[in-house]
Amino acid sequence: MTSAPDNETAAAPAVALPAPIARSSVTTDVALISTFAAFIAVCAILPGIPTPSGVPITLQTFAVILAGLVLGWRRGGLAALLYVVLGLAGLPIFSGGVGGVAVLAGPSVGYLLAFPFAAALAGVLAGWALRTAERLRSSSLADRLTARYGDGVGRAPSAWRYPLLVVAGLGASFLTIHPAGIVGLMVRLGITLPEAFAIDVVYWTGDVLKNLAAAAVAVAVFKAFPDMLRSRR
């Protein structure tokens, strides 16, 4: 009843093997969305890192951008949306361990409501970044870099993905989180655009650092789970 062939099949040419059949991924999608939403919450609850500028950095926006970069626009946006909705429902998962609809009344409302859009936009831009990285890797530019610095620079997928993912993350946060945050400050604090802008600028340094980190982590995740590149949506 048993056939136990030798190891010769392992050495057989790749063309002879049938393609893998993927199982429906609904449950994996649900798990990834919930896990990244929980990750945003953990990053928000953790005490902020003090900085010389006096404004503590929390890792919250790092987690929001990472969700978009890794999961893609749909799942990333849903993860951030789940986090925001559950926080508004009263779970104490916003920065500083607060929660509930009271947060909507606070001056940071714009930043918070922008999170789902930021994650979704990061997902869209990361899709572009990853496709562009593939194209550049097989371009003449890559040939020249390989000739000069070796395969480690010219041909390594990560070397191309990293800078483009940084751009994707920065683009997403500066097109969504910061404009929405500024509008929120203006409405809630009764201040003008330049005044709100002056408050927002304080967060920029931390934001750039967080986007550098998010892209590095995303590259590492794609390296560890190459099929995550195939299933981004």
């Binding site: 099949t9 392992a10 057989a12 790749a14 093997l17 049938p18 393609a19 893998p20 190459p226 195939r230």
Partner: peptide, 18 residues
């Protein structure tokens, strides 16, 4: 028979492995 995709270390298209 169960197979899976495995990335090509040389940077080419993914290979199918057993």
């Amino acid at each position: 028979l169960v197979t899976a995709y495995s990335p090509d270390p040389a940077g080419g298209a993914d290979r199918v492995v057993r």
